[in-house]
Amino acid sequence: MNFALSLPLEHVFVLAAALFCIGLTGVLVRRNVMFVLMSLEVMMNACGLAFVAGGARWAQADGQIMFMFILALAAAEVAVALGIVLQLSRRFDSLDVDSADEMHS
């Protein structure tokens, strides 16, 4: 079952891993909350890519189903996250995540 292109699975996984690392780096180093969220989005899509590729490789529906979940999750996340972003900018007058470090002992 090898329709469309016969992209080796490894290549897709390498791409997914690279995307994941890029996203992760963004999360770890960016201070602007918008960029952090975008980086998270990249990480999730990296996972989604891996799932889709895996599903295609073994011809199972699971991969696509998982991707659907990730989409739903991303939508929910964005809804909540944008609320947080709004609160952050309203309360701290900034989009810097470190400005909300009030929980230190």
Binding site: L24, V27, L28, V29, R31, V36, V97, D98, A100, D101, E102, M103, H104, S105
Partner: peptide, 16 residues
């Protein structure tokens, strides 16, 4: 309590 500094990126680093 020192590790509970409220910085999101610190937590992320720790997780990673």
């Amino acid at each position: 309590a020192v590790v509970q500094n409220g910085r999101l990126r610190w937590y992320a680093w720790n997780m990673v």
